[in-house]
Design a protein around this nucleic acid. Structure first.
Length: 346
DNA sequence: CTTATTTGACCACC
DNA sequence: GGTGGTCAAATAAG
């Protein structure tokens, strides 16, 4: 397993190097920051490879992140528009929820798998849509927290027995930043299809901005996922999905930078890197399951943990066909995507 | 009318 | 007993 991870990491580094080469050959379409990002990605790929070889134990910890988040990010549907008056940033925090967070029902329940931080410098009530349909079933004031925590479960909890749940809570420091915790696996047929990730078009990065808050910065020891974007004109919960507002935006002036979802690159996405994305318009999504029926040939019925793994894997492997526009190696999941999840269950 | 959300009550764990 | 998570009736929205 370690070998595969090392190979994946090295492959990612290679892919980023290719992207860098492309950018260097097309200076007009590539900013210096973009190139720096790619360089950082390359270096971090090597760092990861080395760490995997030197400290195999780190893999165990790392796997938590693979298990934990992923899908929430990959499935996040984010609409960026340059003409927006809003400034919307997303900080997705790849944290494996610690064992201390237990469910009242006891050990039989899954622990919270991950936490996503979502920054919304606008009136976004809750966190990002993640491609699934959620229904709120409770809200609770949390001790020591300024803002209540919302409890959501999959809309198909009753009809299909889907056990996926998530919690959304504003952070104390910044009400515009949300912590989103996920638990359970989607067993419904309505989850997002990761194979349908919509790649964003070139060209790349617009001038950087520097208004990004740097709280919860990722570290190499605790990979976190960060995204920044502008304008997210939607509310979470089921409306996002039902509303066909998620349409691929005009690409003419849209730039897209999407950090890879693989923790390999989490550490790459430094706040400075993130800032590069703050002025761009972009849209990324894995799919609109109920909208895009063309992808039904690819089973969306994947346990969340699996999807999380897919995220990680695909980021590392799919970078082979990563569009140059994806500065952080945003995977482009093709329909021929083939995921061998066995490597994550070693 | 149907569906989703709100919110106080209830339950389990520590 | 305090706290977090869930339930379910009431309410709101479509």
């Amino acid at each position: 397993m370690e070998e595969k991870r090392v190979i994946e990491s090295l492959t990612q580094g290679k892919d980023f190097a290719k992207q860098l080469q492309i950018h260097l050959n097309n200076p007009n379409s590539s900013s210096h920051q973009t190139q720096q990002i790619l360089i950082n990605n390359i270096l971090n790929s090597y760092d990861k490879s080395l760490s995997l070889l030197v400290t195999p134990n780190a893999i165990a910890t790392e796997s938590h992140f693979h298990d934990g988040i992923g899908i929430t990010k990959l499935e996040s549907q984010v609409f960026f528009t340059q003409d927006s008056d809003h400034d919307f940033n997303v900080l997705q925090d790849h944290k494996y929820f610690s064992a201390k967070r237990k469910m009242s029902s006891g050990s039989s329940m899954e622990k919270w798998k991950n936490e996503v931080k979502v920054r919304a410098d606008m009136k976004v009530e809750e966190g990002l849509d993640d491609g699934y349909s959620w229904s709120k079933y409770g809200q609770k004031d949390i001790l020591g927290a300024k803002h209540p925590r919302g409890y959501y479960r999959c809309t198909y909890h009753q009809s299909e027995g889907c056990l996926a749940t998530k919690q959304i809570q504003r952070t104390d420091n910044d009400p515009n930043v949300f912590n989103i915790a996920y638990r359970g696996s989607h067993t419904c047929n309505h989850g997002t299809d990761i194979s349908s990730a919509v790649p964003l078009p070139l060209p790349l990065p617009s001038p950087p901005q520097s208004n990004i808050q740097q709280e919860n910065q990722p570290t190499s020891q605790c990979p976190e996922f960060l995204l920044n974007f502008q304008t997210l004109g939607y509310k979470p919960t089921t409306e996002n999905i039902k509303t066909p507002s998620f349409q691929f935006p005009s690409t003419s002036n849209n730039n897209f930078i999407c950090p890879t979802l693989d923790n390999t690159f989490d550490s790459n996405i430094s706040p400075s890197s993130i800032s590069l994305t703050t002025s761009v318009s972009a849209y990324f999504t894995i799919s609109q399951p109920r909208v895009n029926a063309a992808r039904k040939n690819i089973s969306p019925v994947v346990a969340e943990s699996e999807l999380n793994n897919v995220v990680s894997v695909d980021t590392s492997t799919s970078s082979h066909n990563v569009d140059v526009g994806f500065q952080f190696g945003q995977p482009e999941f093709g329909n021929d995507f083939n995921f061998d999840n066995s490597i994550f269950f070693d």
